[in-house]
Amino acid sequence: MTAKRILIVDDEELIRISTQLCLEETAGWEVLTASSGSEGLIKAETEQPDAIFLDVMMPDIDGPTTFKKLQANPATRHIPVFLLTAKAQSSEQRQFAQLGVTGVIPKPFAPMSLAKQVAEVLGWQI
């Protein structure tokens, strides 16, 4: 079984690094990172990850806009997307879920259980 490939798109370096380390250590997944929505769109198309973690609040293109662009592209629309957000109000989470994302993960999240949480949603073995 080949390792799953995950793309983390977040403008905060510490979150990219800590999430990457946790996913690599707890699940053995290969993790790619992007520091902006623009970079994330390019990497998603060229690298074809198995899932994408997308920060909601980013300076250049925010998460929901990036998600809409991923959905508009036939090369990336099939990739499951999880939004990472500090906006934990249930109304905001419902709004994000209505976009059609696979899941919404509130920040701060428990890094050590993140892979398990994602694997359960996607039906992956870890």
Rank of each mutant, 00 (worst) to 15 (best):
K116V: 10
F82I: 03
R16E: 00
A3P: 11
Q95R: 15
A72V: 04
E30N: 13
S18Y: 07
I8C: 00
S38G: 12
P74H: 06
S38W: 02
L14Q: 15
L83D: 02
V56W: 01
G100H: 07
T33G: 03
Q95A: 10
C22M: 15
Q95S: 13
E24N: 06
T46P: 00
D62N: 11
Q20N: 08
T65W: 01
E13N: 12
V101G: 05
S90M: 14
P111I: 04
A51I: 08
R16G: 00
R16C: 00
I6F: 07
V9D: 00
I52Q: 01
Q48W: 07
A88H: 13
R94A: 15
E24A: 12
E24H: 08
I17S: 10
I61K: 04
E92K: 14
T66V: 12
S18T: 14
I17T: 15
Q93Y: 12
E120S: 13
A34N: 01
I61D: 00
T33S: 05
A88W: 09
D55P: 05
A110M: 14
M1N: 08
F53R: 03
L99V: 11
K116D: 13
H78D: 06
A115E: 03
T46L: 06
L41E: 00
F109E: 02
T76A: 01
A86V: 08
L23P: 01
I42L: 07
V104K: 01
P108G: 10
M112D: 14
L70V: 08
D55L: 05
L21P: 01
I52D: 03
Q125E: 10
L99C: 07
A34M: 02
I42E: 09
T76F: 05
